[in-house]
């Protein structure tokens, strides 16, 4: 049994659908709702059955495909960027929009190979300040730029 793209994807979907199906059993219905033709569980159960059947077929059907082309991919860079975005989400409120955005952009430029500190700082600062000004003055969306000015 070869590990083709379809088979790996089918397995991932199978896990997701099984988890969904298990969670569907936890949808609580009031006694009066249980006899309705369409309850909050009807479609989730239908989707689970359809999904599981399809994913099983995708995993089991014969295939001559190759596996995914993962050679030369820079997983560490992907991981660092996912982490960077997650951290950005966490510090956006406490640090304020301008400070957290400048840090996010500067770190992003640095991770992708920009080593000139002045260049990455200037670009990050200009982009953030122009965007922040556009939001505040042009679109009327007010965001606290720095931690000292507020919490949003």
């Amino acid at each position: 049994m070869s590990w083709s793209n379809d088979r790996i994807g089918g397995l991932v979907l199978l896990c997701l659908f099984a988890f969904y199906g298990l969670q569907a059993q936890h949808i609580e219905l009031l006694p009066i709702q249980q006899s309705a033709a369409l309850t909050a569980r009807t479609l989730p159960y239908t989707f689970t059955v359809l999904g599981l059947l399809g994913a099983f077929w995708l995993v089991l059907k014969p295939t001559h495909q190759n596996g995914p082309a993962v050679h030369g991919l820079r997983w560490w860079r992907l991981g660092l960027f996912l982490l960077l975005m997650s951290v950005y989400g966490l510090v956006l409120r406490p640090l304020g929009f301008v400070l957290s955005s400048v840090l996010f952009l500067a770190a992003g430029f640095w991770l992708l190979g920009e080593r000139r500190l002045w260049a990455l700082t200037v670009v990050a600062l200009v982009v953030t300040l122009v965007f922040w000004a556009l939001l505040n003055l042009g679109l009327g969306v007010h965001l606290a730029p720095l931690p000292v000015f507020g919490s949003r």
Binding site: L13, F17, L43, P44, F47, G54, A55, W57, L58
Partner: peptide, 16 residues
Amino acid sequence: MLKALLMTVLGLMLAT
């Protein structure tokens, strides 16, 4: 087609 159908089902699930 099967892959597209399964992704559709995943989308339907997320909608619930």
